[in-house]
């Protein structure tokens, strides 16, 4: 088992990074890896409530974030500073997350066995 960190850094819908990052995270969890998700910069926008991906011709992968706990993925972190920069707060997000600062993110990147950036 490895500690795999998936870093979401890009906004959803205009590129498949978010969707393919989530696919990878779910697969890793179903293969019994210790998975954590960290959302920074516009990657945070993946977690907004009330999105309608079908309006962009895409599948609604956003709803899939809600099933992460069923895969035992509970380490979901959002960069506090970036959330504030986007003028958003925790109530705007679809799922329960833990807000952490840049220093804590550095520590998590250092602790992981592998980090994949999407």
């Amino acid at each position: 088992m490895k500690k795999i960190t998936v870093l979401f850094t890009r906004s959803p819908h205009s590129t498949p990074h978010g969707r393919e990052g989530l696919d990878f995270a779910m697969l890793s969890a179903s293969f019994d890896q210790q998975v954590s998700l960290i959302f920074i910069d516009e990657g945070i926008l993946n977690l907004l409530k009330d999105q309608q991906p079908m309006l962009t011709g895409n599948r609604d992968y956003i709803a899939t974030f809600k099933v992460l706990p069923l895969y035992d993925v509970e380490d979901i972190f959002v960069c506090q500073q970036d959330l504030a920069l986007l003028q958003l707060n925790q109530q705007d997000l679809l799922i329960d997350v833990e807000l952490i600062n840049d220093h804590a993110i550095q520590q998590k990147l250092a602790d992981a066995d592998e980090v994949l950036v999407f």
């Binding site: 697969l27 890793s28 890896q33």
Partner: peptide
């Protein structure tokens, strides 16, 4: 093959 191949490779 499935994405699981990436995961097992990482492991």
């Amino acid at each position: 093959a499935g994405l699981g191949e990436l995961v097992t490779g990482i492991e």
